[in-house]
Design a protein around this nucleic acid. Sequence first.
DNA 1: AAAAATTTTTAGACTAGTCTAAAAACCGCT
DNA 2: AGCGGTTTTTAGACTAGTCTAAAAATTTTT
Lengths: 227, 227
Amino acid sequence: MNSAITISTTEENYLKTIYQISEKAGKTATTNAIAGGLSTSAASVTDMLKRLSEKGLLHYEKYKGVSLTQTGQKLATALIRKHRLWEVFLVEKLRFSWDEVHEIAEQLEHIKSPELIERLDDHLGFPKFDPHGDPIPDAEGNFAFRQQVLLSTLEKGEAGIIVGVQEHSTTFLQYLDRMNLQLGVQLKVLEHFDYDESLSILLNEKKELVLSHKVCQNLFITKSETT
Amino acid sequence: MNSAITISTTEENYLKTIYQISEKAGKTATTNAIAGGLSTSAASVTDMLKRLSEKGLLHYEKYKGVSLTQTGQKLATALIRKHRLWEVFLVEKLRFSWDEVHEIAEQLEHIKSPELIERLDDHLGFPKFDPHGDPIPDAEGNFAFRQQVLLSTLEKGEAGIIVGVQEHSTTFLQYLDRMNLQLGVQLKVLEHFDYDESLSILLNEKKELVLSHKVCQNLFITKSETT
DNA sequence: AAAAATTTTTAGACTAGTCTAAAAACCGCT
DNA sequence: AGCGGTTTTTAGACTAGTCTAAAAATTTTT
Ligand SMILES: [Mn+2]
Ligand SMILES: [Mn+2]
Ligand SMILES: [Mn+2]
Ligand SMILES: [Mn+2]
């Protein structure tokens, strides 16, 4: 039945990058964008696109950009699933902090064993979100949906809970730690400063603090009922 | 300081195989033996030996076989450490059975992160032996020693505890499971049959059973005081 | 000690993945 | 419709790792 295609780690990384680009940039991924995402040359990308197209993992037409096939998408989401489950493992079980796990998960996501990942999922209690608040797709590639907005869109007086980050850089994550802005923290907007679009917020109904616009644009919030 | 040599997964596998061959076969590993251990051609091995020698990981002289340098040995034992710790993880935490873990550990052992492996060790409670009874070297490459003999060397009346297996094949491990011959099981030799060198043993002071010579030559036992 | 058998090395070729430089195609603008 | 700039593809070369076939060295047998 299954024509048992083997897929290399390199190919997997291309698929994942293409998936992530297509996801946010609407539909097709361009050669240059892929090259950027993988820190490789455009020439290498063109080469690989031909090979992946040959294997039926994406639709490729010269100069037209690419989009993943059903099969290609399945492989990409499986990779994201593995990446995020390993991140949960590293944080929950091995006590790594959220800014240390991405690089290790980049390696672990390529371990090949369907049984392993299902058992890991079980071991972790079937988490739906990773340590950065990103949704973990199920084995079929379906992501959980969650109502969320950027903190920068909240009005004065509105309240909510931090549920995720948009940017994943180490410096941002460490900054958040320093400010006690972990996932699950409850906050309320006290004041909006038009001058630089910074916000004054109240953390856990205790600490008051001012956040720059840049920070507010990178924090996902689920609004709570304001009584 | 550290000239930051990078080492590929392929190179790691060569080092591990050479270490394991040198260990049991006395001193130097031959080209053919390495080729056999890695299921590759002798020509490929010669090629790689030159490269690893160039990198200072082993001593190579044409036609004379090879032996690992200090550095090469450190890398090899680090790999064995990782392999065995991951096997413990798979069995203890993810509930795999001992005949399913080797292949997965072959992949996991190549994950590069010193921090990861030390945290894993901690998480597992610093185990000294893996699920097959093989010793887990510490971070310096030192193996724990344990008094052990093959079951086939026990005399009638002698008793002991199963502490390891010599052969690691799936069929052997599954056979042991079927016969309830797990690590830690206590046994006593009831009778020795000269005809085919099989042994009649008493398991956990309860069940009696006859084991072939082949089985007895692949089970490690730590003798207990016979009162 | 020479012949035969075995092991190891060399030579040459192949694949996956990468690069740089140059050519070709595409896009926006006049 | 054509020019200029940007993007993409092609061409050609390089590395790591592999292979087969043949040559060279070593070991075993006679
Ligand atoms: Mn990540
Ligand atoms: Mn994440
Ligand atoms: Mn193993
Ligand atoms: Mn083992």
